[in-house]
């Protein structure tokens, strides 16, 4: 089976411990950055450089939304269109990040649910090639804590 291609390179990776988002963290003030950042943007911090950092997989849904109509470009989706859920997730390691929620039942997703980072199919490109992205999967309340 051919490998899925990340929809954008460099934002996530599958490690020996599972999927992680790949960004940076400031050595001075601990601020997390995704995508990778060369400099810290915290106005109260003058640390000279940032370190590579991995984020995830555990977090909590801060809020969420449902895309009830086919969105305009450049959003990618396969036909026939199916409404999807996306969430704003507060990861345990301090990053607030957006991501789709992998579920067949967008209505079952809710604020406060525990989630786990996964890598999953986003859509297929015009040649039928599978494009992947990070998503979140709802897990049991205490998972990973």
């Amino acid at each position: 089976m051919p490998q899925a291609t990340p929809v954008v390179e460099g934002l996530f990776t599958d490690t020996a411990n599972g999927p992680r988002l790949t960004g940076s963290r400031c050595a001075g003030c601990d601020m997390p950055y995704l995508p990778v950042s060369a400099l810290c943007h915290n106005p109260d911090c003058d640390a000279p450089d940032l370190q590579p950092a991995e984020f995830g997989p555990w977090g909590v849904i801060w809020s969420l939304a449902r895309q009830d109509y086919p969105p305009p470009a450049p959003v990618k989706f396969d036909e026939p269109y199916q409404a999807y859920a996306m969430a704003v997730v507060d990861l345990d390691d301090g990053l607030r990040v957006l991501g789709r929620v992998a579920t067949d039942d967008p209505e079952s997703v809710d604020v406060g649910q525990r989630v786990e980072l996964i890598i999953d199919t986003l859509a297929h490109d015009e040649d039928g090639k599978e494009l992947s992205t990070w998503k979140f999967r709802v897990v049991e309340q205490g998972a990973g804590a």
């Binding site: 809020s63 969420l64 959003v75 999807y84 957006l98 604020v111 990070w134």
Partner: peptide, 30 residues
Amino acid sequence: EVTDPEYLRQVCVGMPGPAFWGAMCRRRMA
């Protein structure tokens, strides 16, 4: 461009304006 966070958000996640407002609103509902 992949250096533009708004572009990345649409390509990797897909959250147009109304969905962003929806997310803000869901937080308030909760």
